[in-house]
Design a binder for these strands. Structure first.
Lengths: 164, 164
DNA sequence: CTCATATTGACAGCATACATACAAATCGTA
DNA sequence: TACGATTTGTATGTATGCTGTCAATATGAG
């Protein structure tokens, strides 16, 4: 049986007034998870808007990481940038199709695909750099310098706690 | 060419040392978008860990919103909680399968599906409330009170700027 | 050396997300 | 009132993301 009083809802503008919410005293606009999800949507959109290369945020991260660590395996790469082993396979497939990444079977460990970036991949990465930077700046554009630093610090704090 | 001196970034502790990155002077651990994506992953994981009901974060948001606004249309619902019109269809499909949400054809506008929550839906929502709250608290657990307020404020500031 | 154990990458299945296109229906305006 | 523009829900295709399973391969304890 619910205690929800539906009578309280009138037409309000953007933020609905979730008044009298007995079932949950946590309206959506008070949930960090909700904000984070929407920020993620915004970040992806801005990335796509700025992009001058056919790269998604995920593909960029993967390509960037392989450039830093040539010869990394798929599982290692996944751990490095925070992906699932299952997900990374498809990402690499698409980067391989574009000839920006190459899988090479390891001789030491025949289970492993050694990943390397191609010259075209490096070129794409280089070409994308500026627009990626712009996208990142646009996300935090409404924050002042202090807030940007604080935001980064808090993000890292939460990530260290939950992932570390 | 960038003005950023990449030489300045030495091996820092937990984060891999992306030293001498000529291709991009923005390492992953300095990209807000990267942090947001990983926070989103954490948030989803915590939600799933705490959940005592078969509900995803998205489904919870949709169910919650419909409970607040019975008779809302799919497009309105999508706008309300920040989804794509195309995405919301599948979400509603699954909630309808569980008998927690019902589509009713509108008489006034025959294009519209009026969405209403069922008694079972209300019951599920009520049952989920505590665990959803716990999941939200766990996300920001490493932050102190001031930081939590600041984080929420900054999230809302960015969202208002990019969505408003 | 051998066998239990763990790791690696592939695959299937489910659930977001987005862009695009579409038919049906509604609305605005001439 | 007729008709172009818009809105609504649906479908398709692509790309994350996760869980779970599997075969092939390493690894380590005995």
């Amino acid at each position: 049986m619910s205690r929800l009083k539906t009578g309280a809802q009138r037409a309000s503008h953007e933020t609905p007034d979730y008044a009298d919410t007995a079932a949950s005293d946590l309206p959506l606009h008070r949930m960090p998870g909700h904000h984070i999800r929407r920020l993620q949507q915004v970040a992806v959109r801005l990335f796509a808007e700025e992009a001058n290369v056919d790269l998604t945020p995920v593909q960029y991260a993967a390509l960037f990481a392989v450039a830093q660590r040539p010869g990394v395996g798929q599982a290692q790469l996944a751990a490095l940038i925070g992906y699932d082993r299952a997900t990374i396979g498809g990402v690499i497939d698409r980067l391989e199709q574009k000839k920006w990444l190459a899988r090479v079977a390891s001789v030491e460990d025949r289970r492993v695909n050694l990943l390397t970036i191609t010259d075209e991949g490096r070129e794409a990465l280089s070409r994308a750099a500026a627009s990626v930077r712009r996208a990142q700046e646009r996300i935090i554009e409404p924050l002042n310098e202090d807030e940007r630093a604080a935001f980064e610090r808090m993000c890292l704090k939460m990530l260290a706690h939950h992932l570390g």
